[in-house]
Design a protein around this nucleic acid. Structure first.
Length: 494
RNA sequence: GGCCCUAUCGUCUAACGGCUAGGACAACGCCCUUUCACGGCGUAAAUAAGGGUUCGAUUCCCUUUGGGGCUGCCA
């Protein structure tokens, strides 16, 4: 059986995004699992920016990463913005350190300068592929004499730095997958730096993970095959190897890696589209993880961050990839919207409304709250709101035919509107509540047919084919506006 | 191609080696209903295939098949 799991205590974990694009949903999930892991086991969560790719790294992306992580409700103990004892937390600020370690490896003959040109390499690669071998570096520069190396360096011959990959198998015990083994002889000598001042990912990661004393490296499954390469480096330095855990990937509906299909699935995009951070958090964590079922009938799926943290357990992380299902996200989002206190919901919805209808819309908070409350059960996303509640602020024009119930006739509709106007005119302002309204209108509706009365009423109020019911709308609109809208309807018909 | 990971309803998933394989989303149907939603009730829907091990496999092992990742002087 399995070896007993080591007790996890005060782990140090990290998320190490590279600022080469907007904060991606997949990165968000990795961040989330690391955050949960740190919180759950009383450890530290660290944010490190991996910007060794100078070409593609941009400060605006770094800002976005930080902003969206905060938006999702994540906080970190060390890293960019907050600092800490193991800085710098941005790789481009560690160049001296990488250079030092590169020198160390070269001095110890564990790494070497390679002067092969990309063209040569490509040709060799083709050759090997043609022979059916797995393409790898043949080690031409592995044993260059110090004189030759010095000469070439003096002449500014372009070079890279390669690690001498040991000819052996490397195994590790993945927290999620159990034992995983790779044959390193298949790799060849890996390039670990483009130059002394240009370290490459696999090298920089090891230096930093070690330097920051990380105990667990939890990352996407796409890094699984990088792990043995990094272990080689740990061993070259004689450092302790952290525990690794490789999360299953989030897949697009066609099962390809998420980023490939919808390249720009940024968290910011979901935010803009009206998803709540608590819903996105909830949804994403359920992609590849489910809590233990508590005695019997199903599990609770709508959870707060705190509840998730309480239930979280690494052992229950899934191995297989999970497809990102927007329908489920929409449902979870809707559920969180239903649960949210109205003041909070109003605050969060305001930007979406303001965006469409302008600032004045938020001036009357009490009105706004009633409007939002009346429609919270009908929306999936905050961004659905403007379209649905717009009529409260501004009744748009509609064809008079819309006022006519099913196969009723214009004449009846006119009669209905006149009747309603007279009934509602007699009702006092403070009687404009659901109960009173129903008390006077429903008997009439039962008599003449509900649709005959209620449909024209509702359309007159909303101007829409589909909307909330009249007894929800009228109390919000109030007497004056209600009657005004009924007059508009009546005038349309004449 | 090579290496690695992976496999329960369409999707996310549950099931100490032991029940009619459970739940959720979506779909469909019915109810509620002035419309559209909400809500309530219900229906259909899965252990990839083949071998073992076992009294008994969704569960353990092997093979095949499918899917995915990696195979950069990206991260």
């Amino acid at each position: 059986m399995m070896t007993p799991r080591k007790e996890i205590k005060n782990p140090r974990v990290r998320i190490a995004p590279s600022p080469t694009g907007y904060f991606h949903i997949g990165t968000a999930r990795t961040a989330l699992f690391n955050w949960l892991f740190a919180k759950k086991y009383n450890g530290k969560f660290i944010v490190r920016i991996e910007d060794t790719d100078r070409e593609r790294s941009k400060i605006e992306f770094e800002k976005d990463i930080i902003e969206q992580m905060k938006w999702l409700g994540l906080d970190w103990d060390e890293g960019v913005e907050v600092g800490g004892d193991f800085g710098p937390y941005r790789q481009t600020e560690c160049l001296d350190l990488y250079e030092k370690y590169l020198h160390q490896l070269i001095d110890e003959k564990k790494a070497y300068y390679c002067f092969c040109s990309p063209e040569e390499l490509e040709a060799k690669k083709q050759e090997m592929a043609a022979r059916g071998e797995s393409p790898r570096y043949d080690g031409s520069c592995r044993n260059l004499s110090p004189e030759v190396v010095e000469e070439k360096l003096k002449n500014n011959t372009p070079y890279v730095i390669r690690i001498k990959t040991p000819d052996k198998k490397v195994a590790f015990n993945d927290m999620i997958r159990g034992k995983v083994e790779f044959d390193c002889s298949l790799f060849g000598d890996l390039v670990i730096a483009k130059s002394l001042r240009e370290p490459l990912y696999n090298f920089a990661v090891v230096i930093d993970d070690h330097r920051m004393q990380l105990t667990h490296v939890i990352r996407g499954e796409d890094h699984l095959s990088n792990t043995p390469k990094q272990i080689i480096l740990y061993e070259a330095f004689g450092w302790d190897v952290p525990e690794f855990g490789h999360l299953p990937l989030i897949l697009a509906p066609d099962k390809s890696k998420m980023s490939k299909r919808f390249g720009d699935v940024s968290v910011a995009e979901y935010r803009k589209n009206g998803y709540l951070p608590e819903a996105l958090f909830n949804f994403i964590v359920f992609l590849g993880w489910h809590p233990e079922e508590k005695s019997g009938e199903g599990i609770k799926e709508i959870l707060t961050k705190e509840e998730i943290l309480d239930l979280f357990d690494v052992k229950r992380i899934q191995k297989g990839g999970a497809i990102f299902n927007v329908d489920k996200l929409n449902w979870i989002n809707a559920e969180h919207i239903k649960k949210m206190p109205i003041d909070e919901l109003t605050k969060r919805s305001s930007p979406y409304l303001e965006n469409v209808f302008g600032e004045k819309i938020i001036s009357n908070q009490e009105y706004l709250k009633k409007v939002i409350e009346s429609h919270r059960d009908r929306i999936k996303k905050l961004s659905d709101l403007p379209e649905m509640v717009g009529f409260f602020f501004n009744l748009s024009d509609y064809p008079k035919e819309l006022l006519i119930w099913k196969d009723s006739i214009l004449e009846n509709t006119k009669g209905t509107l006149e009747l309603l106007i007279s009934m509602l005119t007699n009702l006092k302002e403070d009687e404009y509540n659901k109960n009173q309204l129903e008390a006077i209108i429903m008997p009439e509706a039962e008599k003449r047919g509900r649709g005959e009365i209620l449909w024209p009423l509702r359309v007159a109020l909303s101007g829409l084919k589909n909307s909330a019911g009249p007894f929800e709308i009228i109390p919000i609109l109030g007497k004056e506006e209600t009657l005004r809208r009924l007059e508009i309807a009546k005038n349309k018909i004449q």
